[in-house]
Amino acid sequence: MVAEAREKSLVLHLAANPNPISIRVTDATADDLEPRLIQIVRNGHTQVVRTADGKDFVVNFGHVVAAHFE
């Protein structure tokens, strides 16, 4: 039996938008980003995030006030 890739959501709370943005990502992407997420937000890095459907989503974390995975 082949294991399916599960998905998580990266939830971004932007400074200028009261509604959070949710980006579906694979567990592999979440496992890569999660340990560095605090530092990425703190430093305001621009980061490419691979979405669950295989596309690249560029996030300017300089505009993100909070981020977490669900």
Rank of each mutant, 00 (worst) to 15 (best):
M1E: 15
M1W: 14
M1N: 15
V2I: 14
A3F: 10
A3L: 12
E4I: 09
E4M: 11
E4F: 11
A5Y: 01
A5P: 01
A5D: 12
R6P: 08
R6N: 13
E7P: 04
E7V: 12
E7Y: 14
S9N: 02
S9V: 07
L10S: 05
L10P: 03
V11T: 04
V11Y: 03
L12M: 12
L12R: 09
H13Y: 14
H13V: 12
H13S: 12
L14G: 01
L14V: 04
L14P: 00
A15D: 11
A15G: 04
A15P: 00
A15C: 07
A16S: 12
A16I: 00
N17M: 13
N17G: 02
N17C: 09
P18K: 00
P18Q: 06
P18R: 00
P18S: 03
N19M: 06
N19P: 03
P20M: 05
P20I: 07
P20N: 05
I21C: 01
I21L: 04
I21Q: 08
S22W: 00
S22P: 00
I23T: 09
I23H: 06
R24D: 15
V25Q: 00
V25Y: 02
V25S: 00
V25R: 05
T26R: 04
T26N: 03
T26K: 03
D27P: 00
D27L: 10
D27Y: 02
D27K: 02
D27M: 08
A28E: 14
A28Q: 11
T29K: 02
T29Y: 00
T29S: 03
A30C: 08
A30S: 05
D31F: 04
D31H: 09
D31Y: 01
D32W: 12
D32M: 15
L33K: 11
L33S: 06
E34D: 10
E34P: 06
P35H: 02
R36H: 13
R36N: 14
L37W: 11
L37R: 08
L37P: 02
L37V: 07
Q39I: 00
Q39G: 02
I40F: 08
I40P: 06
I40C: 04
V41M: 03
V41R: 04
R42C: 10
R42M: 10
N43E: 15
H45C: 08
H45T: 07
Q47K: 12
Q47A: 05
R50F: 11
R50A: 14
T51A: 09
T51S: 10
T51I: 15
T51Y: 13
A52W: 03
D53Q: 13
D53W: 08
G54V: 02
G54Y: 09
G54I: 05
K55N: 05
K55I: 02
D56G: 05
F57H: 14
F57W: 12
F57N: 08
F57G: 06
V58T: 15
V58W: 00
V58D: 14
V58P: 01
V58L: 12
V58N: 03
V59M: 04
V59L: 09
V59D: 02
N60M: 05
N60C: 01
F61C: 08
F61W: 09
F61V: 07
G62E: 10
G62F: 07
G62R: 07
H63Y: 15
H63I: 10
V64H: 10
V65W: 08
V65Q: 13
A66W: 07
A66M: 11
A67H: 07
A67G: 02
H68F: 14
F69M: 01
F69S: 11
F69R: 05
F69D: 07
E70H: 12
E70F: 13
E70R: 14
